[in-house]
Each structure stands twice: as C-alpha cells, then as structure tokens.
Nucleic acid binder design. Structure first.
Lengths: 138, 138
DNA sequence: TTTCAAATGCAACAGCGTTGCAAAAGTAGA
DNA sequence: TCTACTTTTGCAACGCTGTTGCATTTGAAA
C-alpha cells in the first residue's frame, strides 16, 4: 500500500508532507523521531507543518506516537493490529532505538474497585540484538 | 519514616527543598507534577533547584518519575516494592490523576531473539473511581 | 478552469529542562 | 561554638519541543 492510497482511504488531502512522512515511517522497521523523519525528507517543510501532520496522521490512526522519555518521542506506522489490550514497545537503552512488539501480553489487569480500564501501554527497556552483538566484539 | 531520616539513610544533605519534596510526595496518595509539588510548598525554591532535587532523589530511588505524556510528568514516592518485572501506573484520562498499581503483572515478556530484557513500564489508561461517580450524578 | 475549504509557512510565544557561575547553606572537625 | 570546606542553591541565559494566529498557497470538487 502506498502513501497516497493511505491518505485517500482516510479521506485526507494528499499533500507532499503527509505523503513524505507516511513513506518514511512505512519503510522503516523502527520508530523514528521527528528529527529523523525530517532528515530523511531532506529538511523540507516547516516544523509547524510537521507537527500538524503528525497530529492529523495520529488522529486518523495512520501512525502512532511512542513516548519513550519526556524528551524522546518517536512515531511508527500503525500496523492496525493494535489490540484492545494495548500496544507494546521495546526501547534499547544503549542506541535509543524503538521497535513495536506484538509478542507481549498483559495479564488481564486487575484494577482497584470502580476503576474503568480503557487501554494500556507497555514499554520494555533493555538491549537490542545489534547492541548486544557490539559487546561481544573487541 | 520522616523526610530527614530518609535523607540520612541515603547519605544526602538535609536541605529544606529536599525535605519538602519528600514530605509532599510521601503524604500524597497519588503522583504529583512538579507544579503541584511546588504549589504545596508555597512556591519557595527556584525551578532549577527543583529539577536538581528531583534528579538526586530519583537517582537515590527515593522517588520515581512517571511519564504520562510528553508534557505530563509526575513523581511518586518510591515504595521500594518496585519489582524487577516493572512498575505499573494508572492514568485517569479525565482528571489526569496518576496512581501506582501493584496489582498488575506482565506476562513474562517474550522478546525477539537476542534481545535482552531489563525493565518494563506499564501505563494503564482509563477512568478512576471518582470520575466514574461523577458520571452517575446529574 | 474556477472556486473554496484545507493545509502550509512564518512569526511569535509558552513551557520544560539544562548549564555556568557566584552566593548561600549544610556538615564535619577542632 | 566557631571555622573551613564541600555541596546545594538562585539567577540568568539558553536550547528544544510544541502551540497559536494569520496571511498565503495548495488540493480537489464542481
């Protein structure tokens, strides 16, 4: 599926900024920060436009935002398999890369009485395979 | 346990800012933002001092930071029962209150091959008991 | 092609968090 | 209790993220 098809499907105007963001995010196997996406689009587009595009794309569930730390926000293509149980992400604390996981399940949450469950976010921290390999090398 | 005992136990200087933060956070049943803590201390102390104190207290595992959204950070007293499995928090999307949970368990995470697990954070969103009651009232 | 709503770029702004440095406070020893 | 030294604090300044208002441009429907 191509970027313009995605936009059409959601009845959104096909602007080059939106198409660019979708292209970049779709073709990446890991979540990307605003700066990384901007770099890959060769610095076109105003920062404002970027944020507004992110917002629109997020509201339409085309991408989703991952807050790793209060100063590290990344975006990933929404593979629509977002279960109602929630979405899980892996954050490598060494290279700061972030990946979506679909292999983690949350045990049915037992909340305090009279609390209503809506959605959960799971962030697992650790070391990714690339950084682990680096350790074994000299 | 009182604030000054906590500081002594961690071999930290007993300054009024640190004691104030610990007092406020210890006596609250929900996590508090920097602004909320500052208000309860009647606006004494510079913002810089606050951040540095938070950092020190966090490094010494006296309090912990909860990142709810990239623009909503809260702090809670560290009840030391932070299991290695990770810590869970509940975020009420209506009143923005945040509470620590100890009733949620993460199913042993099955990560991709060669990934190393370190720690997990779980954020459950929904409606708290107070906001739910509000709904039934006229 | 024309028209009009929607998206963009620009400027300005607010808030969070950090850093460097001089002044103040806490602590340990005499 | 006083002294000396290290740590913490307050202030000023800065960078970064994200937002808003407004004029201009663009996309798409008629």
């Amino acid at each position: 599926m191509k970027a313009n098809e995605v936009l059409n499907h959601h009845h959104l105007k096909r602007t080059s900024c939106r198409e660019g963001i979708i292209d970049v995010v779709m073709s990446s196997d890991e979540a990307l920060s605003e700066a990384e996406i901007r770099d890959r689009l060769q610095g076109c587009y105003d920062r404002t436009t970027f944020y507004r595009s992110f917002k629109t794309l997020e509201e339409n569930k085309i991408i989703h935002k991952i807050i790793v730390d209060n100063n590290l926000v990344k975006y990933a293509f929404d593979s629509s398999a977002l279960s109602s149980l929630g979405h899980a992400h892996f954050h490598c604390v060494e290279c700061n890369s972030v990946r979506c996981l679909n292999t983690v399940a949350l045990e049915k949450a037992s909340l305090p009485q009279d609390y209503e469950y809506a959605q959960a976010e799971i962030l697992i921290r650790g070391t990714c395979n690339k950084c682990k390999k680096q350790h074994s090398k000299p």
